[in-house]
């Protein structure tokens, strides 16, 4: 079992529905977000290219946040999801410093918080909140260990990229390009 997310940048319109769905589902405090949209413009007028994508914790296979955590609060499940146990977190900030994606933040209550791939919904057989609300259906979620899953098929047939692969983290959120 290896959960991964695949996001089609050609279908994303940058509506931020995934951001709002996450904030609602996970009671993310006002002013914070676990996922966000980036808009990248490449080139110079008139030859410009726009890329929209939804970003979040990459649930890296080689997660530096898990390595740097002094208490073991940041940990990785067998299915690849990286989680933080609030009651074990001391709020030292080491994991925030270690994340090349700046995907973690200090919750107003003190502990460190971030995207969980909606672990609590997966247990009930539901999709992550962001994936389930996407109006253009540009987000896909599934098991990469299963060669016949939707995400495996997409990565077999489409060109894709990951974010800052040179950081050596083996990110598990893939962007179709």
């Amino acid at each position: 079992m290896r959960y991964a997310m695949v996001i089609d940048t050609l279908k994303c319109v940058g509506c931020s529905d995934c951001v709002v769905a996450c904030q609602t589902e996970n009671d993310v405090p006002i002013g914070y977000c676990r996922d966000w949209i980036t808009e990248t413009v490449n080139g110079a007028y008139p030859n410009i290219e726009l890329e929209l994508k939804s970003e979040r914790c990459n649930h890296c296979e080689n997660a530096p946040c898990v390595r740097c955590c002094p208490t073991g609060a940041s940990h990785q499940l067998d299915n690849g999801i990286v989680l933080v146990t609030g009651d074990e977190c001391i709020g030292c900030g080491a994991c925030i410093e270690s994340c090349p994606y700046d995907a973690r933040f200090q919750h107003p209550d003190g502990y460190v918080d971030k995207c969980t791939f909606c672990h609590h919904r997966l247990e009930k057989g539901q999709l992550p909140a962001c994936v389930s609300v996407c109006p253009t259906k540009c987000m896909y979620f599934g098991d990469l260990d299963n060669p016949n899953s939707e995400v495996s098929e997409l990565l077999k047939n489409r060109k894709y990229k990951t974010l800052a692969p040179e950081a050596g983290t083996k990110p598990q959120v893939y962007y179709l390009i």
Binding site: S16, G31, C33, W36, T38, L52, D102, F105
Partner: peptide, 23 residues
């Protein structure tokens, strides 16, 4: 030329625009 923007209003305290976690 490449320009990148956060459009969902990401402005995480002490993280955006640059990290200020350790003082």
């Amino acid at each position: 030329m490449q320009e990148e923007l956060f459009t969902s209003g990401r402005n995480l305290p002490h993280i955006d625009p640059s990290l200020e976690i350790w003082h």
